[in-house]
Amino acid sequence: MTRVLVVEDDRQTANEIKAALGDHGFEVEQAATGREGLLKAAADPYDAIVLDRMLPGGIDGLGVLSTLRAAGVVAPVLILSALSAVDERVRGLRAGGDDYLTKPFDFLELTARLDVLLRRQVVPQRETMLRAGKLEMDLLTHAVRYAGKAIELLPREFRLLEFLMRHADQVVTRTMLFEEVWNYRTVEPTNLIDMHISKLRRKLDCESTEPMIRTVRGAGYMLHAAG
């Protein structure tokens, strides 16, 4: 079972996160201060750590993070913060964080991102061919085939599909798509991502018998590999 450490000082938020992650099938440990989080993370190997940026007491989130990284803890760390400025995000990632989520956030967004972080460890990103069911993507020639039939995609559609294929069978949120595929960090217009997805869908569904990209209500999208 996947074990996640949540370092968050606000009891209610911590409980909500614990409940959401518990529902998702994770085993959750809580820590309310930076010191406690540090001790727990160092004593016990966790699969992932959710770390609040602002923590009371002597050591804040970034302090915990850099200490953990210096101590050789490699578990992926997702930073939660009320600070949304770009340099805050950069500072968090530079200190060794793997992802950064601004409060208030969606719990589905949190679990989706944790899934991606956990999967990133297992799947190497160096292959040149991506496969999901009958769908094939050649990263070198940018050729996409479904059951051997070529599908013509625009560059952005290609990148959209690539991201979905890399995270096949995982929930991918609209924010993740916007950040990774368009590479801008602002509040994304949700309906526009949906429009781009439906254009991509139309091209894929011409060839496939059942929809490859499914909408996960309230969360985002998922590409079904076993299609």
Binding site: A85, D87, R156, Y184, L192, H196, K199
Partner: peptide, 26 residues
Amino acid sequence: GARRAGFTETDISEVVADAVEFYEPV
């Protein structure tokens, strides 16, 4: 002005191209 820290050299036609491409479906 908190976001000045994120300032980099930005290609303005790339920004326009991305925005146009993004809003094309609309």
